[in-house]
Design a protein around this nucleic acid. Structure first.
Lengths: 127, 127
DNA sequence: ATCGGTGCAAAGGGTTTGCAGGGTA
DNA sequence: TACCCTGCAAACCCTTTGCACCGAT
């Protein structure tokens, strides 16, 4: 099961590195299409699955869509814009959460998503 | 568009009130099936859509599945058990989050999900 | 030359919709 | 009696899989 460096998978990896934010399968497909006009969506999905499996990517559901991003970003959370439907990373984190549930509940991790309007969409509103 | 009180929709409403936690469409279907053995899944989905629209329910995606719960529970968050795949409500909340994003981002709301093992599953582990 | 990856098309799972019949108001 | 709601089946969307060909190693 040695991995091969095809131009499709290289394009997918580049897209994630350049994007700097979580991407949906559709967004990735479009980004790769602009470079390789005949990539099929199945290729995208197969690559995404492999990349998640080898822990180069992680996946999450935000705003009703599955989104993928680099796995090596460390602990962080997300901001989702209702206007443009894009998701962004945010660095801060909330404090201790163990008091929120009874002791018999074991907390392994937590996910925090802020929802609102991003900088770009907010700027358009003002103008 | 006057709503009618059919036995199907009454059973759906009862299921949510008795459950006391978010339910997936499949869980609701099973609960209603035990009372009305011939309800179709389309009836469930149509009722869920109407109930969300009239703001009697809200929907969210947790643990990879769309889940529905009563809309009148006030601000709260969720705990998701990786073992049994059930989602529970928790009452506490985190503090001020405005400092997490630049001022140009407008925060309308936030969602926090704790992930781990619930009381019941944790108990089974110990025994 | 191998055999993993690709593209296409078909199959899957969850959700929605069209339609004729049934039941509430 | 009206007409909203229901059950069934087909349609849809997103994602996965089968298959023959392509191409990285």
């Amino acid at each position: 099961m040695a991995k091969r460096n095809t131009k499709q998978r290289n394009a997918i990896r580049s897209a994630f590195i350049e994007a700097g934010r979580p991407l949906t399968s559709g967004e990735i497909h479009e980004l790769v299409l602009s470079e390789l006009p005949s990539v099929g969506i199945a290729t995208i999905y197969r690559a995404l699955k492999d990349l998640v499996q080898e822990e180069w990517l992680t996946s999450m559901t935000i705003g009703g869509s599955t989104r993928y991003e680099l796995a090596n970003l460390g602990h962080h959370h997300h901001f989702h814009c209702n206007q443009c439907d894009k998701t962004f990373d945010i660095k801060g984190c909330v404090g201790d959460l163990t008091s929120l549930v009874p002791n018999a509940f074991k907390i392994l991790k937590h996910e925090l998503t802020l929802i609102g309007m991003c900088q770009a969409c907010n700027g358009e509103m003002a103008s």
